[in-house]
Structures are given as C-alpha cells and as structure tokens.
C-alpha cells in the first residue's frame, strides 16, 4: 500500500490545497508524463524530509519552502530530472542530502537556493569528468561555514570548479576574491588556516599556474618542481568518452584545441580536472602556435627550461602543443590527450 505523506509537508499541502491542486493539474496538462503516483512518491520520499527539517527549525517558513519545492518538483519531476526514474541521480542526491543539511539557507530564498542547487547538479552531471558527488559533500561543509545563502551559492561556484569544472576556473577565482577569506580558503579546500598563506597570495599563485595546489602555497619559499603527467583528458567514445578516433592537439592564444577527425573541441584543464567543449567541425584559419616553453622528442623526453623528464607513454607522439604552463601531447594509440606540467615534488 502506498505510504501517506505526513508531517510538515502534509500540513502545508493541506493549508493550501486549492493552490497545490491547481498547480499540479496545470503542470500535468503540459507534461502528461507527470504521473500522480510518481509525483506523490517524490513528495513523500524527497520533499517531505526537507519540509520536516525546515519545520523543526523554522516553523514559520514551511509554507514558503514547500511552495518553492513543489513548483520546482513539478518542473523537474515532469521532465525526468527528479523522481525515482531520474536520469540524473546526483540531482536527486542533492535534494536528499544537501537541501536537508542547509535549511537555514533554504528558508531565506527557497526558490533561489533550491533552483540553483538543482541547476548546478544538473550541469555537473552533464559535464564529462565533473564530480557532482564531490560538489554535494563540499557544499554540505560550506553550509556550516557560510554566513548566508548568497555566500553559500558563491562558494558553490568554487566548489564546482574544484569538482572538475575546469572551464569555470577564471570565474571561480573571481568568486573567491569576493568571499570572506576563511570561507574562500574553505571553498578551496585549504582547511589548515594557520599555516596557509594569505588568500590573495594563494589566488594569485593559482591564477598564474593552473597546477598549483592551494594548500601548498607557502610564503614564497617554494618547493622543488618536477615535470609530470598531470592529467589525461578525453576517452574513446565506445567507452563513454567523446572521441571516435585518437585525437590531435593544437594551441591558439594559450587555449588547447583538440580534433578527433570529426569535431574540434576546446580543452580546459587544471589540477581539479579537465573538460572538453564542442566547437564544430572546422576552425577557420587555425594555425598551431609554437610555444618554446616546452619541447618533446620522439622518445617521449620532455624539456621545460632546465628541467627534463622522459615519459615512455608519450614516445612517438602524433601531435603536441603547449602554452606557458602545460604541454598537451597525443599519441597514435590513445584516445586521450596527455597533459604534462611542472608540479611540486612531494617525494
């Protein structure tokens, strides 16, 4: 037998029965797939726990929160983004784990907070290589540190970057500068506040070097750096990746461009991850720019200034391109782009 909706949600629904019925009826018209059983189950299993948490701390805010969650549920369950049959399990996880953990932010602007969290998790879920689960964990932690919903959402941009959305790097660094320094450090994952460098120093160093870890930025002494393969971006389409054929790489204006025989992609990468963004079948006037910072020979030996290292996996490379901080290399038998950079040596 189907379980009843109980608790704070049941009371809120009862109080505004006409309004909720009308909303459901109208939503059902435009989305016939919005089945009453599935929607009721979503309310019971996902919305009800959030309403209960809100009810136990902010009893006066239950109606407003339920109103916003109900509207978003109609929108998202109907289109398959939420509910038991969701195509985006991380989105459902976000409602079930994150929203119940931040009732204090949810009550300040339920539609904004819940809508933003939902959209962020959707974007993380649809970006290859991004880690939505990590974002949820990070945001739960930020829930204890941030003072209001605005800084919570601002910190969310930084956490998204840390969760693999490398293309948000520039905007996330900007967001960090707007945040309270302690919140910014926490968002960057620098938990040891006492030994950490000032936030401006951390951000400046990270802005200059995409492979600089925020927790190891010291007061200018610096550790020894060595050449390493820091990341592999992309994979064979048959295994869930994007490339149908081993790709080739080029660089223009410091930006890496990858061609897989069908499509050109922009590659963004840093220590938190890498993302690929479709450009199109052609890039008019593209010419690979030669950057003298890195050199690679057929044996896979890479040189950067006075530093050198040999990488057997990169021998007989099919293409390479570099900017000031990173060397991108492709090889004939791999569907990935290898990224080589100077990073701190911890060994």
């Amino acid at each position: 037998m189907e379980k009843l909706i109980e608790g704070a949600l049941a009371e809120a629904l009862k109080r505004n029965r006409d309004r909720f019925n009308t909303k459901y009826a109208l939503a059902r018209r435009s989305v016939p797939a919005l089945l009453p059983e599935a929607f009721a189950e979503h309310l019971r299993s996902t919305v009800s726990p959030i309403a209960d948490v809100v009810g136990s701390h902010f009893v006066d805010c239950v109606d407003a929160v339920v109103d916003a969650l109900y509207d978003l549920s109609l929108e998202l369950v109907g289109k398959g983004f939420l509910g038991e049959q969701t195509r985006y399990p991380a989105l459902l996880d976000g409602w079930r784990k994150l929203l119940v953990a931040v009732p204090h932010f949810l009550v300040s602007d339920p539609a904004l907070v819940c809508g933003s969290v939902s959209n962020a998790l959707y974007n993380l879920s649809t970006t290859a290589g991004a880690r939505p689960g990590e974002w949820i964990k990070g945001m739960i932690q930020m829930g204890w540190i941030c003072s209001d919903a605005a800084s919570f959402l601002e910190a969310g941009k930084v956490i998204a970057w840390r969760s693999g959305m490398a293309h948000y790097r520039e905007g996330a660094l900007e967001a960090c500068r707007k945040l309270d320094p302690d919140v910014a450090r926490a968002a960057l994952g620098v938990m040891d506040v006492k030994s950490a460098a000032p936030i401006d120093v951390i951000l400046d160093r990270m802005a200059r070097d995409p492979w600089q870890h925020p927790a190891t930025v010291d007061h200018g002494m610096g550790r020894k750096k060595v050449l390493k393969i820091v990341s592999r971006a992309g994979a064979f389409r048959g295994f869930g990746g994007l490339f149908p054929a081993p790709p080739r790489v080029a660089v223009r204006g410091g930006e890496f461009l990858v061609f897989d025989n069908e499509t050109w992609w922009t590659l963004t990468a840093d220590l938190f991850g890498s993302t690929l963004h479709r450009v199109g079948p052609k890039i008019p006037g593209l010419k690979n720019e030669i950057n003298p910072a890195f050199k690679i020979d057929s044996s896979g030996r890479v040189l950067k200034e006075s530093e050198g290292a040999r990488f057997p996996a990169l021998s007989k490379s099919s293409s390479s391109a570099s900017n000031e901080t990173t060397l991108a290399v492709t090889v004939p038998l791999s569907h990935s782009v290898y990224l080589v950079a100077m990073v701190e040596d911890f060994q």
Partner: peptide, 17 residues
C-alpha cells in the same frame, strides 16, 4: 565564453529577485 554564473542556469526556474 565560460561564465561561472552558468553553473546556476539550467532546467529549474530560478526566480532571481
């Protein structure tokens, strides 16, 4: 090209006051 604000744009309607 890449705006971090896009993180919060998606299928859910966000009524930004």
């Amino acid at each position: 090209k890449f705006d971090v604000a896009d993180l919060y744009a998606g299928p859910a309607t966000v009524a930004v006051q």
